[in-house]
Design a binder for these strands. Structure first.
Length: 482
RNA sequence: GGUCCCAUCGUCUAACGGUUAGGACAACAGGUUUUCAUCCUGUAAAUCGGAGUUCGAUUCUCCGUGGGAUCACCA
């Protein structure tokens, strides 16, 4: 038997990170078993349809390399099929027409709430005499088709949760076909999973309570149900179901914030699963090999980004300069101050060195442009306060003193290829002035970068070369002369 | 409210019924003698409560407690 899994989102917007994890697990399970992964669009509610959502869903999945083998299959194109099956249930007496208006149903639920009993359809239309039904039908009164849930218990085995047990009497007679003729999730989902020969339904825990309804449908049709695996929820920091409002939830938001797909996949995979060893760096290919449903957690996991930052920095550092360049260049080109001519003042070898120095400090891709700016830009927009440091005892006089003495020393130096020679030259200056390292080096570093954090002075001098280094230092001296 | 699910450091989690309850992230302290980052070392930090089963429960059972999901002509 070939394994078939599916990801079945409804096109109501972007790809939610919870959806990303569901898709990931379904994908991993299919790949690992040399099975098939289907993408199905559950668009049976035309009211909720969002323009462009299907496109963005597909783009997101492709971005993360979660490629599907079949689909996208649109449920909205399959209404005739659902109708056919609903008729079948009607004929076998396992479903019935309901003519109740939403006002009637609201009133009924209000009553039930008042009496403190569970809100549930009271089956008033089931009691309808056949003639009466025929009458309403002839009059063209709109109706829905409801499943007739038998009052018997339903047991099933969930791969993640173990034995499940539900009482039939607690289950509502779910609407299968809406008055507009379109199916509800419950019918469409079961029919499609059966027709597409889905073997493993991997979905979020929020579907657990409706699983008995689905099982009842399988039984009513005489079909063998698939294996169910209900994934634990992704949680907000307050442990409620992860939602917008408390932060970003769209996968694309994280991409826009400069997170790498490798980091995202690795992070998301470990929210609810672990390999049982102490390894934690896993590529998509590693996950395909190692993933297993029985190591999936039962409890929900808080979607906490701290570890994502760490993973992202890790994957960023693992990039080759070529890969990193390809990732940063588009971001650079979006900056108002950038032009393609700017990098040309550096040789290829220099560019590579600059990039790898910056690479070590990046947390997200967005840090790229910020950290590269001091190298690329001709003039920096200095801020005085940045030069001073109480901790290192650097005040305005110290800044000037440091610059005035460092400039001639660096001017006398011709070889900027070795940090050691630059260091020797500057250390000599520091000793001559009788200052501490930081008192000279801190102002120089700020003069070179105009940033609070950056590579060290010797490294900067080497990376920038003699010309740019001196230009920067002189510009700073002028800045303080005014 | 009914039904169902869940419960180990702040967070993600590990632990055939027998461990000083392990790891990672974050935090903190120190080192790599300029900032930041990297790297290294160290510190602090958890089995929700109560019974029971057992020679022995984080682990099995029950009862509490807490949290969550779900109860639409939405998925």
């Amino acid at each position: 038997m070939t394994v078939v899994t599916r990801f079945a989102p409804s096109p109501t917007g972007y790809l939610h990170v919870g959806g990303l994890r569901t898709a990931l697990y379904a994908y991993l399970f299919a790949r690992q078993n040399k099975g098939k992964f289907i993408l199905r669009i559950e668009d049976t509610d035309q009211k909720r349809y969002v323009e462009g959502a299907v496109e963005s869903l597909q783009n997101a999945l492709k971005f993360f390399d979660l490629n599907w083998d079949e689909g996208p299959i649109f449920q909205s194109h399959r209404t005739a099929i659902y109708q056919k099956y609903a008729q079948q249930l009607l004929e076998s007496g396992k479903a019935y027409r309901c003519f109740c208006t939403s006002e009637e149903l609201d009133a009924m639920r209000e009553q039930q709430a008042k009496l403190k009993i569970a809100p549930k359809y009271d089956r008033r239309c089931l009691e309808l005499a056949p003639e009466k039904t025929a009458e309403k039908l002839a009059a063209g009164i709109p109706f829905v088709i409801r499943q007739l849930i038998p009052y018997k218990d339903i047991d099933f085995l969930d791969t993640i949760r173990g034995d499940m047990h539900f009482h039939g009497k607690d289950i509502d007679d779910q609407v299968l076909i809406k008055s507009d003729g379109l199916p509800t999730y419950h019918l469409a989902n079961v029919v499609d999973d059966h027709e597409m020969e889905v073997t493993h339904v991997i979905r979020g825990e929020e579907w657990l309570p409706s699983t008995p309804k689905h099982l009842w449908l399988y039984e009513a049709f005489g079909w063998t149900p698939p294996i169910f695996a209900h994934l634990p929820l992704l949680l907000n920091p307050d442990r409620s179901k992860l939602s917008k409002r408390q932060g970003d939830v769209a996968a694309e938001d994280f991409v826009a914030k400069g997170y790498l797909k490798e980091a995202m996949i690795n992070f998301i995979a470990f929210l609810g699963w672990n390999p049982g060893t102490e390894e934690e760096i896993f590529s998509l290919e590693d996950l395909v090999k190692r993933f297993s449903l029985d190591r999936v957690q039962k409890a929900g996991a808080v979607f906490n980004l701290e570890k994502l930052d760490w993973l992202n920095a890790h994957y960023l550092r693992a990039k080759t300069t070529k890969e990193l360049t390809d990732l940063i260049l588009p971001l650079l080109q979006k900056e108002s101050w950038y032009s393609d001519a700017l990098p040309q003042k550096f040789s290829e070898a220099q560019k590579e060195k600059i990039l790898s120095s910056v690479q070590l400090r990046m947390k997200t891709l967005l840090d790229g442009p910020t950290m590269l700016r001091p190298f690329l830009l001709d003039t920096l927009d200095y801020k005085r306060e940045l030069f001073f440091s109480e901790k290192m005892k650097v005040d305005e006089a110290t800044v000037k003193l440091a610059l005035e003495n460092a400039i001639p020393a660096l001017e006398a130096l011709d070889n900027y290829d070795e940090e050691e020679t630059i260091k020797a030259a500057l250390v000599a200056v520091i000793e001559k002035l009788g200052l501490k390292n930081g008192q000279v080096l801190w102002p120089l570093r700020v003069a070179l970068t105009n940033e609070e954090y950056s590579p060290g002075v010797f490294e900067l001098c080497r990376l920038m070369g003699k010309e740019l280094t001196l230009k920067r230092l002189k510009a700073t001296l002028e800045f303080f002369a005014v």
